[in-house]
Design a protein around this nucleic acid. Sequence first.
DNA 1: GCTTGACCTAGAGAGCGGTCTAGCTCCTAG
DNA 2: CTAGGAGCTAGACCGCTCTCTAGGTCAAGC
Lengths: 141, 141
Amino acid sequence: MDGLSIGQVAERTGLSVHALRFYEREGLLADAVRRESNGRRVYTEDDVDWLNMCIKFRSSGMPLDTIRKYTELVRQGAGNEADRLALLKSHQDHVRAQIEELNECLNVITWKVDIYQQHVDAGTADGLWVTPSTQTASEAS
Amino acid sequence: MDGLSIGQVAERTGLSVHALRFYEREGLLADAVRRESNGRRVYTEDDVDWLNMCIKFRSSGMPLDTIRKYTELVRQGAGNEADRLALLKSHQDHVRAQIEELNECLNVITWKVDIYQQHVDAGTADGLWVTPSTQTASEAS
DNA sequence: GCTTGACCTAGAGAGCGGTCTAGCTCCTAG
DNA sequence: CTAGGAGCTAGACCGCTCTCTAGGTCAAGC
């Protein structure tokens, strides 16, 4: 058995069958999906690999539009590797920036968690925690 | 001068005035914003601090709904610190998971970037790169 | 007095990324 | 023969997060 049904691909990729059809309509598949005589989609392992790449792109915040552009470059075939590289590098920068930003957020959140943790550990009856009307910025947030 | 106009707060936080009003309507502000006699909003430095927190929450993927819940806990005043802590910890986990996922994506992307970089560095005339119809998964993606 | 610009409210609209429905065809098992 | 389940298409709808518009107020400067 050489081809996969849409249901099988959904199972393997974690995408819903809806999403798979949606991605296809949106032009995110490198090769046109073959069809059986009855019109049903037949996916190859390469399609699954490609989809898994797309999922990585998506989950790192690449918009569908950019994935589509990349897909088109690949579809055009050899000769535009520099363009593909530029697109990938740009996304790479983007992902690095996201990680950086998340780390900053994590620091702030961790700082707050620690404050609350200390407070909760110390018990709530010590009166250290003021009422809203007299809260300072750091206590209020 | 003790109060800030909405425009000044927009400038300091990077949020648009639209977004500031929107956040207020959505109940994301810990304290009700004071108004001048003419109805204009007057923000305090604490409001700005709070908003900067919200921005950290948002940019790390906390939905407005969750920020609202946190805000409500803070508004209720002392006594629910354990709840706030739980919320913050849950988000902390979420952020860590996001960072992890992004790092995985970054690995994949970096792997592809390296492949393309080598190819582009080697020049495009060497025929190593096949046409779409014969691409394998790793070459195609 | 008039203009300009910042501000106000309520509510519509927009972009993204799906998700779901309606109404249909097919195939297979009982 | 029939029921169930998977698939098909086109297109409506959704949740989220803004963003903008319409229609107005208000204060300061020329």
